[in-house]
């Protein structure tokens, strides 16, 4: 019944490193509609195992819709076996997208942890497109934390989109050694002209939120929660915010960074 539900074809499902894949779907009715921060909800299997669909941020939407994903359990395992030409039952695009930075913004800082980098490539694509439409585009900075070298992707694409990329890995195999917050000291965060976007593990976003509060910085966070419907129907994906419980799928996944209550 939803206009959002369609069967699309897999165009490619490329293995980037042992646990990371890039899936490319021919989804013409998503292209042109999807905004940065929105996601798609994929039924990985016709049967009942796993039972829920699986949500993934749109990573790019040029000719095809692309997602970047990490194999962590049965759902993503099944997804990794999809081949060119396979049909895929997809709901989307879903959710509230990132706001575009205000005209006063001189500097956009994207803080990504691991696979949380996914929504930022499409974001920088959109920001660049705005530039060609005559908008002033702020300086783009990506602070990117990953476990190790094989877990850090797309730096070339971000650089091509005009981003300054700073990387931190737990083992120091690329960039500085340590957590992504080690990179904060490299940036001049002027609260009046800086806008933050973040996506990644909750502890990372919680650290960033504390930093942002201390420095009076504003921004938005793209959140994750287990989802059933992804249509705002079941009220199963709620998180705590200063406005009460909010569903990640319908009220989010993008929220004001300062409104989320991390537990």
């Amino acid at each position: 019944m939803p206009q959002l539900q369609n069967i699309y074809r897999v165009v490619a499902n490329k293995k980037l490193s042992p646990r990371f894949y890039q899936l490319c779907i021919d989804a013409p009715s998503i292209i042109g509609k999807v905004q940065p921060g929105q996601f798609i909800h994929i039924r990985v299997n016709d049967g009942l195992e796993p039972f829920f669909r699986r949500p993934f941020s749109v990573y790019r939407a040029q000719k095809y819709v692309e997602i970047l994903y990490e194999v962590i359990g049965p759902g993503t395992q099944i997804l990794s076996l999809k081949k060119k030409g396979d049909p895929l039952d997809v709901l989307g695009p879903i959710g509230k997208s990132f706001d575009m930075p205000s005209p006063e913004t001189r500097q956009v800082v994207m803080v990504a942890g691991g696979i949380g980098v996914a929504p930022f490539l499409i974001l920088t694509d959109f920001l660049r497109k705005r530039q060609s439409l005559g908008f002033d585009v702020p300086k783009l900075i990506l602070l990117y934390g990953g476990r190790t070298k094989g877990h850090v992707f797309s730096m070339k694409e971000f650089i091509n989109n005009g981003c300054a990329v700073h990387v931190a890995t737990d083992d120091g195999s690329v960039g500085v050694r340590g957590r992504v917050d080690k990179l904060f000291s490299r940036i001049d965060f002027n609260p009046r002209t800086t806008w933050i976007y973040t996506c990644g593990p909750k502890p990372m976003m919680a650290v960033l939120q504390r930093f942002a509060r201390r420095h009076r910085l504003q921004g938005q966070a793209c959140c994750e929660e287990t989802m059933a419907c992804a249509l705002g129907a079941c009220l199963g994906c709620s998180i705590r915010t200063t406005q009460g419980f909010r569903t990640v799928c319908y009220d989010g996944p993008v929220f004001d960074l300062n409104e989320i209550i991390f537990e």
């Binding site: 009942l48 039972f51 829920f52 079941c234 009220l235 199963g236 994906c237 709620s238």
Partner: peptide
């Protein structure tokens, strides 16, 4: 009603558990 604290849902074999709490 605000409903119950998260997590509110989890998938199980051929089904799911919910404890939304009539939000």
């Amino acid at each position: 009603r605000l409903g119950n604290p998260p997590a509110r849902i989890v998938e199980t074999p051929a089904g799911m558990l919910n404890a939304i709490g009539i939000e």
